[in-house]
């Protein structure tokens, strides 16, 4: 399998790098798709701009009005969407790989709910600003991550126990969220439900820079751990025999993934199903074994842009939050996934 799909590039000096033509092609294709979707998304709205004009404006040759609309309103929103999609998908890829289960993604096993509880506590109990809400989401997600890890710990953490403990914790956290929504007045409750659905409305550079900083640290870290993660998929014992420090790799990757997901959640709310579906779609596109981290991240960015375009344009005058689209599309995809994976005996 590997000999057929991977090739090696050798230099005369003795350096060599192994790569997979199909996976590399898929990543390039997804990057191109993301850029194209981004340009279309920047161009669409109440003040339409053609793709050529968008490119010209980005290069600095636009009119004043175009400059304002692109630079101040739509570009930051699109960039936030790209980063959020990439973070969610990467976090999902890591968790699915660690739990060795396509459904072991952060939105199913409780981190999303943890972030929601943190953010809602800030909205409902302290009436906090948007920055404080984001902080609450990060803290909530991290505490939940640590809690689930400790509860699932029993001479090491195993995939299925992690997932099931996560489901139990998620049920408790959901109860806490519902309780806080009943305690709020209707304005706060609407704000809370909007936040919980996940939206990109009104995102600007204030959300972009912290997210970019997190990504700049965490994405290279996760990508660097791609090889040991792939060995972990063969089972703890095999990985151990191959020289992977199993628990240390797992803790590092889980921390990074939880941080990625929390950062994305802080910026745009818990947008569901991107973490679940992006890695699965990427895997089908690359047909490569292993966690497919880079392809997953690009797929997440492209998916979220497409979902955002659908949410803002497909329902006439009414703009829906992007989370509605991802949850409905993701739900249908999930049904299909459950059926096919079961037929193949993989779940």
């Amino acid at each position: 399998m590997i000999t057929r799909t991977s090739k090696a590039l050798r230099t005369p000096g003795g350096l060599s790098i192994r790569y997979q033509p199909r996976a590399t092609g898929a990543v390039l294709l997804l990057v191109a798709a993301t850029v194209a979707a981004g340009i279309v998304l920047i161009g669409s709205g109440d003040y339409p701009i053609s793709p050529a004009e968008v490119v010209a404006t980005l290069m600095g040759d636009g009119t004043m009005a175009q400059e304002f609309v692109v630079q101040d309103l739509r570009l930051p929103r699109v960039l936030v969407a790209v980063l959020v999609g990439a973070c969610l998908a990467l976090g999902g890829a890591v968790f699915q790989s660690i739990s060795r289960n396509p459904l072991g993604s952060p939105d199913v096993i409780g981190f999303g709910q943890g972030s929601a509880v943190g953010a809602l506590a800030v909205i409902v109990l302290f009436h906090g600003s948007q920055a404080a809400v984001a902080g609450g989401a990060v803290v909530g997600g991290l505490v939940t991550g640590v809690g689930i890890y400790l509860l699932a710990w029993k001479r090491g953490v195993h995939g299925f126990r992690l997932v099931l403990v996560g489901i139990g914790v998620a049920a408790m956290l959901t109860a806490a969220t519902h309780y806080m929504i009943t305690k709020a007045d209707l304005v706060d409750a609407t704000r809370a439900v909007l936040w919980m659905t996940g939206t990109l409305d009104g995102r600007d550079w204030v959300q972009f820079w912290p997210l970019l900083a997190m990504c700049a640290v965490l994405i290279p870290l996760v990508l660097a751990f791609g090889r040991p993660l792939r060995m972990l998929e063969m089972g703890d014992d095999s990985a151990y025999a191959l020289g992977v420090r199993v628990e240390r790799v797992r803790v590092t990757l889980m921390c990074a993934a939880v941080l990625l997901v929390s950062a994305a959640t802080a910026a745009a709310g818990p947008i569901v199903f991107v973490s679940l579906s992006a890695p699965q779609l990427a895997r089908r596109l690359t047909r490569a074994p292993g966690p497919n981290l880079a392809a997953s991240a690009c797929m997440g960015a492209a998916l979220l842009l497409a979902a955002d375009w659908t949410a803002t344009n497909a329902f006439g005058d009414r703009e829906l939050p992007v989370g509605v689209v991802t949850s409905v599309v993701g739900g249908v995809y999930l049904l299909w996934l459950l059926v096919t994976e079961r037929r193949a005996g993989r779940i």
Partner: peptide, 23 residues
């Protein structure tokens, strides 16, 4: 595990819909 996952996934999807309607 399979049943719990299927149930949780269905719950997540359905609550997504419930949230959307509420909004």
């Amino acid at each position: 595990v399979r049943l719990a996952l299927a149930g949780t996934a269905a719950t997540a999807a359905l609550y997504g819909y419930v949230n959307a309607v509420q909004l």
